[in-house]
Each structure stands twice: as structure tokens, then as C-alpha cells.
Design a binder for these strands. Structure first.
Length: 693
RNA sequence: GGACUCGUAGCUCAGUUGGUUAGAGCGUCUCGUUUACACCGAGGAGGUCAGAGGUUCGAGUCCUCUCGAGUCCACCA
């Protein structure tokens, strides 16, 4: 045996070997329960980041269950990640002096598609580099045609069941570019603008936007504000520039009693906070600014003015009527600007698709309460329940191109909608008019990813869904428990009638060595692939598991990486010692007589029990700790040392323990263990071994 | 503002349902150049488990409060 372990050679050699021999493909055995994990699909737009290395937990579970003899499937895929991908792509366009508005919808979509396809092989090779036992023959993408079909049909089912409705929701709209923008695209800047103190009947309120007052449908104060408590729930008479009006006063926590006078006007159609307040108190939404950036006829004589002109005109008129108490000209606040043209972003109400989520949420709560789904660590159940109990209807429309287009057609004649399972209708379902246009919007990315467990299995091999669904474990970061995991439960239950997975396993975040979140803007991103090159994939895997309890965050630790690299070296050298002994000299007497042999075999037995128990509870860090301690301090330091005095007699035990250790360690360190296992000349892969009991 | 997590040896973190002298890795100190390994071995030092109070025969582990760190949500993915 070589003096040192060459991890690079081993990593490439064995992954190819496993893949070529189809070891990652499960053998379907009817009647036998399979073990199934669907890989949380990484965003297809970028290489893997450190968060993705936590997939190692899934790999350990998959490899462990394969050794136990379960037909085990780990299904890979990629997510189109709507907003984020389009945003990243536009940054590339900007570098070339272009923007998304230079292209037609279809062209833009195709360009992003190509951009994403270019990245996908990189991602694939990275997942391989880390040794992940993924069944590549079942690889899926959220925009695969067959997946899209399923997403469409789920939407249709919801629509037919009356779970889908249209409602207005505010979007960031640039009236100059004539389009809406995602939050990522809005640039917030500090601006100085006059703060007007305006008389509203008995009250005085402060606002920077007097021109939107025609859209006011309420006045809000803090519910505990003693000054105004008596007005809450009452309707007050106010004098306005357009004459007398009546308006309701509501109490809402959102109001800051210390700001201005502690009274704000509520304009649900033109302010995000006001929209929230309006929703809570059932206030009407009255649009006064149009998509052309001008006031509409609700503004009376101010109609057709631009927002800026109207503001001045309204203030002048108010001054004349004595409605302006004072003007604070020093007021500074953050204002949203269009990242492209620097215009002020106008929050405007746009009709969008919503899903009535409460009935689905109730079933998702029950699934966990009754134990059909278990959450590890259990403490996350609280968050899960809290989210589902307070859930609000799900807005699934997105005003972007990169995504699955919503299969709904609007009729210009009867204003009705025709929703299909994807097919293009030739006429309106309601009035048979041919004048129909498909909705421009695409689905929220989470709407498709919420269907991932069944959408994937329904579109791989025939019979897959019936055999592998419900899946066994959904393992992912706790940060997307609500956005993704809870929604998978809801939509999965709704569409298939079954839970999408039986266990939810949540891991924590990987932060930089100083405990800070890794992010591009901080510039503290560490490439996991570089570390895998330096320390070896096995060591990186172990370092991620060692010493971090499930669900807890960890800071990347170089000492830990070193320790695990040293551990690989230790095992390599134990093997060198054990296998370096000429086998012909060994007494093949398997009867254990010596107390040392008995001791180490007992210890091994105990280790197996503990590791097995810890794996069953998803306590991987404890399993790793047990193995580390056994291998280094019991096997190497004690048994191997003492065996030197009676080498021939100890040889069978040395070999036996080493081989068992390799099998136990294989889920954690697949490359090293395969490399060493091969030295036993057993002419098979360690992946075909049995988990010792 | 709401919720959650964390605060245990110099550093990074473990410590299942409360139960004997609180553990690991790294670092540190002493010794050791024994042919598996210096990416090593033998041994040692180091903690009033953030603070205060409470429940209990017994608390790092449960409850309350205080202080500190971080994350999520409140707008969005």
C-alpha cells in the first residue's frame, strides 16, 4: 500500500465505478418498503454554495439504508428559481449594455433557458465530487415539459375546486418603464421630502403623499394610543379639497404613535403598509393613480395630473382651505426607485391569482399532529404550526418571464377567465368569444416546487410514483420550512391525498469561520469545492457533521477540517498496518480466546448499536463522534498497539474489526472506505455490503 | 414589533426522557524520533455550564426574569 492516501484519484475512480455499475439506482422489489429522498433541487442558475454541502446528511441516510438492504432512491433535480434567476441573468445583460426590455418574451425565455442549461452540468459534477449517491437516471428540472404539465393540472384542479380566485395586490410599478418589478429590483434611497400635517376633521395626520388622499379609505392610530382611543371604530366627518367626506378610524399596531401626530391616513391601493392595514380591517381599496402615473377621475379636478404635479396642486388647494397645519421640510425617509431608470416606484394594485390556503393548511397541521409526518428536531414543530395557523392566502402570480406561465386566458368580450390544464383554448369557455389573451404572469416558483415530490416521481419511470410515494425523508435547511416544506405538505396532500414524505429533517446554516452568514454582498463566500480539493471530499463531509447537532447552525471550521483530514489519514494507516501483514501467516482461527480480542469485538458491537440508533434518530453528529472515538482511541490506540505482541493471533480480529468499521463508516466517508475495502480483494463494492448488526 | 435559536474548557461545539468525578476536536504544557500513522503516541492543566430566582431528594438539562449574540417573519423569494 502507498504511504499516503491519494484522495483525488480515489474520488474520481470510485464515483465513476459506482455510477457505471448503477449502484445509485434502486432495485424495485414489490412488497418491500423503499427508502426515498427527493433532493431539494438547487437553483439551476449558479454553482453550489456551502448550504448545499449539507446534502451530506441525505447521502449518509441513503447509503445507510442501502446497506440495510432497503431499495433506496435519492432523486436529483434542479429548480428554475424564477425571480432570482431572472435577476442574475439581467445582471449579465446589463454588463453587455442590454436589458430584458430589448427582447421579446419568447426570446428572453430562451436566453435564460440556455444560460441555465450551461450551468447545470457544473452543478452535476459538483454533486458527484462530494460523492452523493444520486440516481442520475431520474434527474429532473422544474421546467421539464412533463413537470410543467403536472403543475398546470394541479392549478386546474384547484381552480375547479374553487380554491383559486383573483384579487388585487400591490406591485412595485415603474410608470415610466410600464412594468412591475420584484423587490430585488427596487433600489431604496434616502430622500428629503416635505412632511405635511393635514387636518382630518378632529384629527391631524402627517403624510408625504397628500395627492393620494383621494384613495384614503381609512384613518389609523395605534390601538393603545390614549389620545385617540375614543375615535377607534367611529366614522369621522372631514373637510377635503373635494368637499365633505366621512372616513372610518381604525386601530392598528402598525401605526407608530411617536411618528408625526400618531395618526396616519390609510390608502390601501397605493402603499404597502396601508394595504396590510386595509386587509386587516376590511377597508376598501380605491385606486387613484393609474398605470400611466397620472391621477384618475376619482381625483376630481386633479384628474390627469402627474403624481408630482398633483401633489403641489393639492397642497396649494389645502392651504387655501386652511387644511394644512404645518410642513416639516427636514423629513428624510427611504424611497423606492426603479433600478433601471431611477424613477420613483409606485405601489399599484394589480389583479393576481390567489389560492385559498386555509383548508389545505388545516390538513397539513393534522398530518403532523397525528404523527403521519414527524419533524426532526421536534422543536421546529412550533414554527410549522404557527405558520400554518396564521397563514394567509397564497399569491401565486409573478410578473416575470422566467417561470411556468399561468394557463389562464382572459376574455376581452365577457371578462371571464378560461383555465385549462395547459392546452391553448380557441375560445372563451363562457361566451365562446375568440378574443382571449393568456395571462402574462408566471407561477410563483414555490408553487411548482411545492409539487416536487409527486411531480418528479410521476414523470420518471412508470410505476415510480406508485412505488416510491410517499417519500421517506425530506431533509433541508430550516430556513425554508414554511416557504417550501409546509407548502409541499399542503399541496402534496391536496393533489395526491397522501403526505409527500413521512419525516422532515431540518439542518442549520453553514456560516463563515467568524459566524457570519455567507453572502455575496459580504464577500465572505467560501467555495466548498476548493475545500474538497484541499482536504478531500470525505473530510469535508465529516467536518460538516462532526460536532453540530441537527438543526443548529455551524461556523465553518478549519481546525475541524484538518482534524477530519487527519482522521482519513489515521484510517488509511490502520489499514496499512492491518493489511500489510502477510495473510498466509495469520492463524485462521476465528474462535476468540484472548481477552483483548473479546474486548474490541464487544466494543465494536456496542458501537454498531449506538451508531444504528443515532442514525435512526437522525443524530448524525453523535454517530460520527462514536465512530471517531472507537476507531482512533479504542481500535488504533489500544487494540492495534497491543496486538503487535501477538500479531498472528490477532490478525483475524484486526481484519474483522477494520472491515466492519469500513462498512459503518461508508455512509459518511464513501471514497476512503471503498478504496480500502477494495484492498481486501473481495471483488465487490462496499456498497453491496450489509450493515453489520 | 412578533417568533425562534443560542450563550458549557483559550477557540469551535457535543451533552437522548433532570441522576454518580460535565465531554470531543483544535490549541496549550510535559515526555516520547517504538518499522501503520509526527496528518503520530503516552500523560497533564484548563469549566462556580451568561446572571438572578424558583420547582425538585437531586438541574447544564424544567419554569420565570435580566443581560448578551444571531436568525426568521412583519415586503419578497
Amino acid at each position: 500500500m502507498q504511504k499516503t492516501y491519494d484522495q483525488k484519484v480515489a474520488e474520481e475512480k470510485w464515483y465513476k465505478f459506482w455510477e457505471v455499475n448503477n449502484f445509485f439506482k434502486p432495485q424495485i422489489v414489490k412488497g418491500e418498503k423503499p427508502f426515498v429522498i427527493i433532493l431539494p433541487p438547487p437553483n439551476a442558475n449558479a454553482p453550489l454554495h456551502f448550504g448545499h454541502t449539507m446534502y451530506v446528511i441525505e447521502d449518509v441516510l441513503i447509503r445507510y439504508h442501502r446497506l440495510l438492504g432497503f431499495p433506496s432512491l435519492w432523486l436529483p433535480g434542479a429548480d428554475h428559481a424564477g425571480f432570482e434567476t431572472q435577476f442574475v441573468f439581467e445582471k449579465h445583460l446589463t454588463k453587455e449594455g442590454k436589458s430584458r426590455f430589448d427582447y421579446k418574451r419568447e426570446t428572453l425565455y430562451k436566453m435564460i433557458w440556455d444560460f441555465v442549461q450551461k450551468n447545470r452540468p457544473i452543478m452535476g459534477s459538483q454533486l458527484r465530487k462530494l460523492g452523493f449517491a444520486l440516481d442520475w437516471s431520474r434527474n429532473k428540472f422544474t421546467l421539464d415539459e412533463d413537470i410543467v404539465k403536472i403543475v398546470h393540472s394541479s392549478f386546474k384542479k384547484m381552480y375547479d375546486d374553487g380554491l383559486v380566485y383573483r384579487a388585487k395586490r400591490l406591485v412595485n410599478y415603474c410608470t415610466r418603464d410600464g412594468t412591475s418589478f420584484s423587490d430585488l429590483e427596487v433600489v431604496y434611497k434616502e430622500r428629503q421630502s416635505p412632511l405635511y400635517f393635514i387636518k382630518y376633521g378632529p384629527l391631524t395626520l402627517a403624510t408625504t403623499r397628500p395627492e393620494t388622499k383621494f384613495g384614503d379609505t381609512g384613518v389609523a392610530v395605534h390601538p393603545k394610543d390614549k389620545r385617540y382611543k375614543k375615535y377607534i371604530g367611529k366614522t369621522i366627518e372631514i373637510e377635503t379639497v373635494l368637499g365633505k367626506a366621512a372616513i372610518k378610524v381604525v386601530g392598528d399596531e402598525l401605526v407608530d404613535p411617536d411618528f408625526g401626530t400618531g395618526v396616519i391616513k390609510v390608502t390601501p391601493a397605493h402603499d404597502f403598509d396601508d394595504f396590510e392595514i386595509g386587509q386587516r380591517h376590511g377597508l376598501e381599496m380605491k385606486q387613484v393613480i393609474g398605470f400611466d402615473g397620472r391621477l384618475n377621475k376619482a381625483a376630481g379636478k386633479f384628474a390627469h395630473m402627474t403624481v408630482a404635479d398633483a401633489r403641489q396642486a393639492v397642497v396649494e388647494e389645502m392651504k387655501k382651505k386652511g387644511l394644512v397645519e404645518k410642513i416639516d421640510t427636514d423629513y428624510k425617509h427611504r424611497i423606492g426607485l426603479c433600478y433601471k431608470c431611477d424613477s420613483v416606484i409606485e405601489p399599484l394594485p394589480l389583479e393576481q391569482w390567489f389560492i385559498k390556503i386555509e383548508p389545505l393548511a388545516k390538513k397539513a397541521i393534522t398530518a403532523v399532529k397525528t404523527g403521519k409526518i414527524k419533524i426532526f428536531p421536534k422543536s421546529f414543530e412550533k414554527i410549522y404550526f404557527l405558520f400554518l395557523k396564521n397563514i394567509r392566502d397564497w399569491n401565486i402570480s409573478r410578473q416575470i418571464v422566467w417561470g411556468i406561465r399561468i394557463p389562464a386566458w382572459f376574455c376581452l368580450d365577457c371578462s371571464g377567465w378560461t383555465v385549462t390544464g395547459g392546452a391553448n383554448p380557441d375560445s372563451c369557455q363562457r361566451c365562446q368569444s375568440k378574443k382571449i389573451n393568456q395571462d402574462e404572469d408566471t407561477f410563483d416558483t414555490w408553487f411548482s416546487s411545492a409539487q416536487w415530490p409527486f411531480a418528479t416521481l410521476k414523470t420518471t419511470s412508470p410505476g415510480d410514483f406508485e412505488y416510491f410515494y410517499p417519500t421517506t425523508v425530506m431533509e433541508t435547511g430550516y430556513d425554508i420550512l414554511r416557504w417550501w416544506v409546509a407548502r409541499m405538505v399542503m399541496v402534496g396532500l391536496y393533489v395526491t391525498g397522501k403526505v409527500p414524505f413521512e419525516n422532515i429533517v431540518l439542518h442549520g446554516l453553514v456560516k463563515d469561520p467568524y459566524g457570519k452568514k455567507m453572502s455575496k454582498s459580504r464577500g465572505n463566500i467560501i467555495d466548498p469545492m476548493e475545500l474538497a480539493d484541499e482536504y478531500g471530499a470525505d473530510a469535508v463531509r465529516m467536518a460538516l457533521l462532526f460536532g453540530t447537532a441537527l438543526g443548529n447552525d455551524q461556523s465553518l471550521s478549519y481546525p475541524k477540517l484538518q482534524a477530519m483530514r487527519n482522521f482519513t489519514n489515521k484510517i488509511w494507516n490502520i489499514a496499512r498496518f492491518v493489511l500489510g501483514f502477510a495473510p498466509k501467516d495469520a492463524k485462521r482461527d476465528l474462535k476468540v480466546k484472548h481477552k483483548d480480542d473479546k474486548w474490541i469485538r464487544d466494543e465494536l458491537e456496542r458501537l454498531i448499536v449506538r451508531v444504528t440508533n443515532n442514525l435512526e434518530r437522525y443524530e448524525l453528529h453523535l454517530a460520527v463522534d462514536e465512530i471517531y472515538d472507537f476507531v482512533w482511541h479504542k481500535f488504533a490506540d489500544k487494540y492495534v498497539e497491543k496486538s503487535k505482541e501477538r500479531r498472528a493471533e490477532a490478525q483475524p480480529t484486526l481484519e474483522y474489526v477494520l472491515r466492519s468499521v469500513l462498512v459503518i463508516l461508508h455512509p459518511f466517508m464513501p471514497f476512503l472506505t471503498e478504496e480500502l475495502y477494495q484492498k481486501f480483494d473481495l471483488e465487490k463494492s462496499i456498497m453491496l455490503e450489509k450493515w453489520p448488526t
